[in-house]
Each structure stands twice: as structure tokens, then as C-alpha cells.
């Protein structure tokens, strides 16, 4: 039995939009084990992204607990959460979310800046990571000089910057053509093989083959939680 990295314990999240209150999560119980490739499936508005924000410490629950490596993060300050995110979690977004004024190299260095890594180490590690995702010749390119697939690979390199144990990917192939999408999935699969825990949110059923566990979310609750044999 492998270790639990993240545990969502009866988590609810209600967004207060003034007159209406939206219940995005209505009591989620989920344990993410170390070394898993977990896909959270659901239609848009199902609460899957909110669920991922909880796992990624980007947001705190309205009620319930979120435990990361056994620590209850629900009550931590935003600054403490930021530290945890920076060290333990790497994010890959559908929109890539690179900083447009920075080169590929600088984008990958960014998470290390906030962890106080010195410049030389940063540069070396960022170069290595970009080589690893096949962008060794694109170090000094700005995001708008890169294709969608290349941008997403920069984002993956950035997610790996502080060598986190958990990679969170929110529709990482959503804005890519199928070839670039396959390349990105290949990199994520490789990372999983190297021992990283990968949690991916998607609504694309064709991706389920990459995962060894699939969680279906609808209307803020977990419908199905299936292990897959590969």
C-alpha cells in the first residue's frame, strides 16, 4: 500500500457570487496515492477544476479538510500555501499560463526564484529541464515565438522546476492539436514512470488510457472511482 499524498476529507466549496451561492463541491472524499496517474473526468461545471484547485492548494475548502502529506492545509495562510505549492506541486494549465514577457528559460526559472534558488543553479536546472522536454534549442524564445505544443512543454518544464512530487494538469491537451497533445501526454506518462504522481483533469474520454485510476465527478460529487489495469 503506497503512501497517501493528498487527502480530501468531505470537502465542500461554495462560491458566493453575491445574490447566488454556487455549490461547486458537495462533499468530496478522495485519497491520491503516491505514484498514481489519476484522471478526474467531468463535464464543464462539474466541479472538477475546483477539485483540482483543492488538491493543488490554490484554494481552501468551505468545509472539510484537505491534507497534503498529512498536513491540514485548509487553515493555512495564503503565504504558507504558496510555499507548499512552490515546493510540492507543479501545475500545467490548459492555457499554458506562461509569462509573455519572459523567455522559456526565465519562465522555467520563475518557481525557483520564489524558493530562493541561486541564479547559477536555476539556469542549469532550467536548461536541463527544457532539454528534457525537447526544447533545448528554444531557451531564449518568448512564448509568442513558440507553438502551442512547445508552450505546453515549457509549462511542464516549469512545473518540474522545484522537483515536486505531484504534477497537476488541468486539461493540458485542451488547446493543442492531436499530435502536440500526444507529445504532451507522452511527457506526462514518462514523468509518471519516473515516479511522479500525476493528477490530470479532463473531459476528453480518449485520454483515459493513460491513467491507472479514473474519478468521475458530476455536480460536485464523485460518481465513480475506478482503478484500471494497464
Amino acid at each position: 500500500m503506497s503512501k497517501t499524498i493528498v487527502e480530501l476529507d468531505n470537502v465542500t466549496k461554495t462560491y458566493d457570487l453575491g445574490k447566488v451561492k454556487v455549490k461547486a463541491l458537495r462533499g468530496i472524499n478522495l485519497k491520491v496515492k503516491q505514484g498514481e496517474f489519476l484522471i478526474i473526468m467531468g463535464a464543464s461545471g462539474s466541479g472538477k477544476s475546483t477539485c483540482m484547485n483543492m488538491i493543488g492548494c490554490l484554494d481552501v475548502p468551505t468545509s472539510g479538510r484537505v491534507l497534503l502529506d498529512g498536513i491540514n492545509i485548509s487553515t493555512l495562510s495564503e503565504s504558507k500555501l504558496a510555499l507548499i505549492r512552490g515546493r510540492k506541486i507543479g501545475f500545467v494549465f490548459q492555457q499554458f499560463n506562461l509569462i509573455p514577457s519572459m523567455t522559456a528559460l526565465e519562465n522555467v526559472e520563475l518557481p525557483m526564484i520564489f524558493q530562493g534558488v541561486d541564479k547559477k543553479t536555476r539556469r542549469e536546472r532550467a536548461t536541463k529541464l527544457l532539454n528534457q522536454v525537447g526544447l533545448g534549442r528554444r531557451l531564449e524564445h518568448k512564448p509568442n515565438e513558440l507553438s502551442g505544443g512547445e508552450r505546453q512543454r515549457v509549462a511542464i518544464a516549469r512545473a518540474l522546476a522545484n522537483n515536486p512530487s505531484l504534477i497537476l494538469a488541468d486539461e493540458p491537451t485542451g488547446n493543442l492539436d492531436s499530435k502536440a497533445g500526444r507529445e504532451v501526454m507522452k511527457i506526462l506518462t514518462d514523468l509518471h514512470k519516473e515516479g511522479k504522481t500525476v493528477v490530470m483533469v479532463t473531459h476528453d474520454p480518449s485520454l483515459i488510457n493513460y491513467a491507472d485510476r479514473i474519478v468521475h465527478i458530476k455536480d460536485g460529487i464523485i460518481l465513480k472511482d475506478n482503478k484500471r489495469r494497464k
Partner: peptide, 16 residues
């Protein structure tokens, strides 16, 4: 705003 979000997601604290 979005860049601030990105920086926070990759570990920037409020003080940063």
C-alpha cells in the same frame, strides 16, 4: 492579474 495568479500558483507568496 493573470501573471500574478501564475506566480502565486508556482509558489510566490503575498510578500513576493
Amino acid at each position: 492579474t493573470k501573471e500574478i495568479g501564475i506566480m502565486k500558483a508556482v509558489g510566490a507568496r503575498n510578500s513576493d
